[in-house]
Write a protein that binds this DNA or RNA. Sequence first.
DNA 1: AGCGGGTGGGACTTTTTTGTTCCCAAAGGG
DNA 2: CCCTTTGGGAACAAAAAAGTCCCACCCGCT
Lengths: 347, 347
Amino acid sequence: MGDKVQELIRIQQIIAPEITKIIQLRYDILRAILYNQPIGRRNLASQLKLGERVIRGEISFLQELNLLHINQWGMTLTEEGERITSYLEEYIRQFGGLSSLEKKICRYLNLPEVIIIPGDSDVNPMVKSDLGRAGARYLKNKLQPKQILAVTGGTTLAEVAEALGNMRFKMDVLVVPARGGLGEKVEIQANTIAAQIAEHLGGDYKLLHVPDNLSPAALRTLQNEPGIKEILDLIAEADLVVHGIGTIEEMSSRRGLGEEEVKRIISKGAVGEALGYYIDSKGKIVDVISSIGLHLEDLKKSKLVVAIAGGKKKAAAILACMYASPQSTLITDQGAAEEIVRLIEEK
Amino acid sequence: MGDKVQELIRIQQIIAPEITKIIQLRYDILRAILYNQPIGRRNLASQLKLGERVIRGEISFLQELNLLHINQWGMTLTEEGERITSYLEEYIRQFGGLSSLEKKICRYLNLPEVIIIPGDSDVNPMVKSDLGRAGARYLKNKLQPKQILAVTGGTTLAEVAEALGNMRFKMDVLVVPARGGLGEKVEIQANTIAAQIAEHLGGDYKLLHVPDNLSPAALRTLQNEPGIKEILDLIAEADLVVHGIGTIEEMSSRRGLGEEEVKRIISKGAVGEALGYYIDSKGKIVDVISSIGLHLEDLKKSKLVVAIAGGKKKAAAILACMYASPQSTLITDQGAAEEIVRLIEEK
DNA sequence: AGCGGGTGGGACTTTTTTGTTCCCAAAGGG
DNA sequence: CCCTTTGGGAACAAAAAAGTCCCACCCGCT
């Protein structure tokens, strides 16, 4: 399908997101009938895990459209119904189909939940805002009062913070940075984003001001400072962790890493970074940024870990991080998702 | 926009007609804000003739999308909002925009209601089915128990009858043919269609079996036959009249008109036919088929007259008939509608 | 300075929609 | 002849949407 169609669907999804669900639902019903015809209402409902009444409503609608035929043995697709179904199959792939992509990635990587938004952040910067919006929506659904939310820095997380600002959504949570400041620009530092999110949510926040790349000895000293330790404990207890994912190229330019340092990390096989860990394409941790904050052991305690990142270029990094952290929810975009699937299936 | 987009929208409208309304609504709101910003919630509601709460719901949705901005003076579109609005303007023209076409034709022809469905029956025969479905839906909304429904023949009306069959819609009405049999093929004769509709609705029907092209004297005799007269009285009392519209070319081929007869009618300036009346491009009746049934005077008594016809080729005929009968509801398709507007504006 | 008209936001009730869960008669299969 | 399935229908519960207020605020006008 053409570019215009892509654009059309993008706009449509922005302006009326509910249509995705409607069309996906009707397509699922049509397909289920196609594969099981003739099939009865109750049977269909239990197969699709939908209420009997929902089915009934949709059925009578589809029947009016002359897409299916009912007799005493059950429901059958009409010729027109079959035509529409096969057309929808292609159509669904464009947007509703993202949900089949989602399932695919869930299966491949054994993740609990994957959310894909259409487009590619690398190509269209607006998609990055959409990604932020998706993240914000996710938080809106999952956050409970009095919970602790840990966030990292990065441009994507900054989008999440901004999107939360546009929502009329308040929740009394405590927001903390997942790790100490990582020497980035202020507006995309974890501290800044944590404070911003807390303000938008009407919640509280605690910051962690720690210089980057300290000596191990200095870090140990800092970790035992009462003021710092208190915050580190809060971070370790976080109920939700939302983090971005970085490629190695990004790291070298954004952070104060020397060229030889980058080369060293690359030579170890690192392709991605998340929460201060460098990870190779197999999902093995090959290096750690010398900073303090959330640890890998803490992650396992946390109820929910959410990774947000998009763009085809980040696919390898995302894949690596998801291998390393299979309990995470992943929010990404179509560009990255398709590339991830390609990478997996290529092997 | 391309062909693919057209097709996409067509399918979408079939499978999920509600999206039209949703998108149209949101577009209307965005546009109203654009032209009146800054504007308040209540003001907006009264202008768009919508409930205050509806507006509030949509507003908070659009706000989350970052399409508009709220402050103490009212609501303003953001840059992104303006971009989306201008995109939607083009998009709406493709399907929701039909409703602006509808309004335009209402205004030009002073009709109470116009319904336009996308596509062109001449190009895509499926559109004719859609037209029938639209007619059926209209009847479903308007019919009341015990009413009398008069219908004519024709392929379009046949589609209406079929579409009614696919709906699970029952209504105890009496269906009658608007005029005596007009010598067409059985399956598109008024009598056949009346019976079919009545059966689908679970109602009653009366038929009118009268040969075509009788001498005036014979007609007068027939009209006073008790059995015939009874039915004619029912027809005259009809609450709803649904009729098709024919072009002269159709008439000559479909009906048993001789070639010189057709020439005679054309020489009088006739461009369309409805309910047995030949009408010229100004809307003047130039000839009448010698048959019995509904009369022009009866039309004025009837509460609702619905004309159903589509296809670019029929535009001139539709226009003529609408000039002649400005109290009618018109159900047509995009192809005809656009041509009608062109014809009007050309003059 | 006070007033009237506008703003958004919040809270409440009513209405409508949606979902759950039955029962029913009919028909095919064993 | 029973058992299972079918669609159709209806009663009822839950949830979402809509209608309607009121409130605090801010402006410009008198």
